[in-house]
Design a protein around this nucleic acid. Structure first.
Length: 156
DNA sequence: GCCAACGTTGGC
DNA sequence: GCCAACGTTGGC
């Protein structure tokens, strides 16, 4: 089991959208490192810190769970999609997606400022300057700490 | 294989 | 809106 952090812009697709939909394909990952994590390491049941980027404020909004392991991302073959990749070979699709399921939302996010200020989270990837990997593993210790901070804000 | 140009991410 | 960080592309 691996714990994860995945970023999304709430204006595009936020945790409240996932709560409404209950499950969603995590489409549009177009970074090789992030893809490799999804393809090679994400397993059904893995828990995910759902991070809102470009938000006011940015931070971890709650939890999701991997509901389906990696499969080819259909949007790469959809010419009308923003995520279309005409160079991806149909017989060996370049990009994958996983399905996420809603788990819980917090009354207020654990903000990036809060994450940076917490000495227990010093080495956490998302607190690093210039960090922009949208899918990456999180240590169990960091995961548990962020969940404790989030739940302290109240579970919706 | 190097590296400059360019595009994207995402905090502020 | 600005810009730092960093990934990708393409000329050589």
């Amino acid at each position: 089991m691996t714990a994860w952090l995945m970023k999304s812009e709430p204006d595009v697709y936020g945790l409240s959208d996932l709560k409404r939909d209950q499950t969603t394909p995590w489409e549009g990952v177009r970074n090789y490192q992030a893809r490799n994590f999804l393809r090679d390491d994400a397993q059904v049941g893995d828990l995910v810190l759902f991070y809102h980027s470009n938000a006011e404020p940015s931070g971890v909004a709650g939890l999701a769970r991997v509901a389906r392991a990696a499969y080819p991302d259909p949007t790469q073959f959809d010419p009308k999609s923003d995520y279309a990749d005409p160079t991806s070979p149909p017989d060996a699709p370049r990009w994958v997606t996983v399905d996420l399921a809603f788990v819980e939302a917090w009354r207020a996010p654990v903000t990036l400022a809060q994450l940076k200020a917490d000495s227990a989270l010093e080495s956490m990837e998302v607190t690093r300057r210039g960090s922009r990997l949208s899918v990456h593993p999180v240590s169990q210790v960091h995961f548990d700490r962020v969940v404790a901070l989030g739940r302290a804000n109240g579970v919706l």
